[in-house]
């Protein structure tokens, strides 16, 4: 389990909507730190067995734990909970909206540990909360680029300011694709090693078009024109056409861009007057999808050529 540092407050904010979290007690102590990205059911600990007890994790008291605690005489219940809280756990979550036992609240006050509750059943809570913690802990960067979801393919356009990223995005939206983020994309690496792009909370759904200013994309183009987040499949580098620069003409040389330690396929597209960049990007994305499915047109044609030309020689 990787070491991390997430405050209970951050966890609460991130999981509040998905898990319906509420603070029951200890609101002043939300700065306590979660150092392991998993959720623990402290069943064994409540029986008094503390070997290998993962004290750095969020502790959940679900139906079984609660029933067990109820089965104990009050003094023993207090003692066992005291043992648990004494280990400086980050916080306790009660699932199924259980009422906190008085002994639990006493311990929370004594050890300055927050108690939260969720209406979810324990398993569901563990799944959603683990995902929330993973997302919080995922390495992330803010990246200068506009991201589009194009028929299930995540495309991040990068290039010098004024090269036309937003205008190209607009053209792609008009062709029925969805905007993920304009100009600044938040990228994070999830636990599977995929790069996920999304917009910053404040600017989500907006874009800036030179000469027009800021526009609200779903108001103009409908809700389908926006997508909250998208896995990144292809980086498209837009650059001013430079006659000195030799652009890849075959597609045999695969380019990549390393983002958060992950190599993402990339293409460089020269922007010149009269080129329909949106259309070129559409094709680049489809071609990338084809490659992911195992068909590399450039490679296949080349193999066919080599075969044919070599056979000609023998003939």
């Amino acid at each position: 389990m990787s070491i991390l540092e997430i405050s209970v407050e951050q966890f609460y904010e991130a999981a509040r909507d998905v898990c319906g979290l509420e603070i029951v007690a200890g609101a002043k102590h939300m700065q306590r730190v979660i150092r392991e990205g998993a959720i623990n059911r402290p069943g064994l600990a409540l029986t008094g067995f503390f070997q290998h007890f993962p004290k750095r994790r969020v502790q959940v008291i679900g139906l079984a734990e609660n029933s067990y605690l109820n089965s104990l005489p009050p003094d023993q219940r207090k003692e066992r909970l005291g043992e648990l809280f004494r280990r400086r756990i980050p916080c306790v979550v009660l699932t199924r909206n259980r009422h906190a036992l008085p002994e639990l609240l006493e311990c929370a006050a004594e050890f300055n540990i927050p108690i939260l509750k969720s209406p979810l059943i324990t398993n569901r809570f563990i799944n959603d909360a683990t995902l929330a913690i993973e997302n919080l802990a995922a390495p992330s960067i803010k990246y200068q680029g506009t991201m589009i979801a194009l028929r299930g393919i995540g495309v991040l356009m990068e290039g010098a300011p004024g090269i036309g990223k937003s205008e190209t995005a607009l053209a792609l939206i008009e062709r029925g694709h969805s905007l993920v983020s304009d100009d600044l994309t938040v990228l994070r690496r999830d636990s599977t090693g995929a790069i996920i792009g999304s917009a910053g909370d404040m600017t989500r759904y907006h874009m800036e078009i030179r000469g027009l200013g800021i526009i609200h994309v779903p108001s103009l183009f409908g809700v389908a024109s926006m997508r909250r987040e998208m896995k990144l499949d292809l980086v498209v580098r837009l650059e001013h056409f430079n006659p000195e620069h030799s652009y890849d003409r075959t597609g045999l040389v695969s380019q990549t861009e390393t983002l958060l330690g992950v190599e993402v396929p990339a293409v460089t597209i020269p922007v010149a007057a009269g080129r329909d960049i949106a259309h070129v990007i559409e094709v680049a994305a489809l071609n990338q999808k084809l490659k992911q499915l195992g068909h590399d047109a450039a490679k296949e044609l080349d193999e066919k050529l080599v075969q044919t030309l070599t056979r000609r020689v023998r003939a």
Binding site: R249, T250, L301, V306, L309, T310
Partner: peptide, 18 residues
């Protein structure tokens, strides 16, 4: 060359000619 003018040599030739 043994394999004739397949994609890689063609790309080299184009680059040079350009």
């Amino acid at each position: 060359n043994k394999h004739g003018m397949h994609a890689r040599p063609a790309a080299l030739l184009i680059k040079l000619a350009g």
